[in-house]
């Protein structure tokens, strides 16, 4: 079943239009990666889908329901969570408080979920009473993922989860992303690290100049000559 779909989405900032009609489709429990050069509109696409930017034309469908133009809060309630690229934790709050904020809209007892999520990230769990600002870059990224999982989302939008991480951390983050998918969450991520991310993706999209350029399964894009030349360094 199609979990999330963007149809011919047009969006941008102020007078500048960045997306000129982009479409993507995410099936249940899939990882979908969006790659493309700087300025292609990858982050803009995630923000528009999540309702952080107004969708000027086109539609966003979530679980078959039209959610175009809904606010981020509505999206969160419907089961879509978003992890920004940078500054994605609350630095003066402790690790545990960060997770509580992830569960802000839950009125039920979220403690069991918190323990479950923390168990997924042992590094972070050890430091649950530390302020998030004191964590390392990799740990912050883990905490950001953990925060987004607190609401048991059906779809997770990740904006460059591996950006500015050490190589061994990148590997770890991608491993965690695979784990999350296995637990039944569909994932859409924007990535610079095309090779690693396509390896674990079911589908990939290549954006350029605010339009769809290529799409296919993760492997087919990895094998594609154009993708190889442009984004995989030969």
């Amino acid at each position: 079943m199609t979990m999330l779909e963007a149809r011919e989405v047009v969006s941008g900032y102020g007078e500048v239009e960045i997306l000129h009609g982009v479409s993507i489709k995410v099936e249940e429990e899939q990882i979908v990666t969006i790659i493309g050069p700087n300025g292609a509109g990858k982050s803009t696409l995630l923000k528009t889908v999540f309702g952080l930017l107004p969708c000027r034309r086109g539609r966003v469908l979530f679980g078959g329901e039209d959610v175009t133009g809904q606010s981020p809060q509505t999206m969160v309630r419907k089961g879509m969570c978003y992890v920004p690229q940078s500054e994605n934790v609350f630095p003066t709050l402790t690790v545990q408080e960060n997770l509580e904020m992830g569960a802000f809209i839950r009125r039920d007892n979220y403690r069991p979920k918190m323990e479950e999520v923390l168990a997924l990230f042992p590094d972070v769990m050890e430091r649950r009473h530390t302020r998030a600002g004191k964590l390392s870059g990799g740990q912050r990224q883990m905490l950001a993922l953990a925060r987004a999982l607190m609401l048991e989302p059906r779809v997770l939008l990740l904006d460059e989860p591996s950006a500015s991480l050490a190589p061994n951390m990148v590997e770890l983050v991608f491993a965690k992303i695979s784990d999350i998918r296995r637990s039944g969450v569909a994932i859409v991520m924007v990535e610079q690290n095309a090779r690693e991310s396509l390896k674990l993706s079911n589908r990939g999209y290549v954006l350029a100049m605010g339009e769809n350029r290529l799409e296919g399964t993760g492997e087919s894009l990895l094998d594609s000559e154009e993708v190889g030349r442009l984004y995989l360094g030969g």
Binding site: Y13, G36, N38, A40, G41, S43, S86, E87
Partner: peptide
């Protein structure tokens, strides 16, 4: 994204 408070559409990193 928070923190990048001064905005220039051209530096949109996507």
């Amino acid at each position: 994204p928070p923190g990048q408070s001064t905005v220039d559409p051209r530096d949109e990193d996507g």
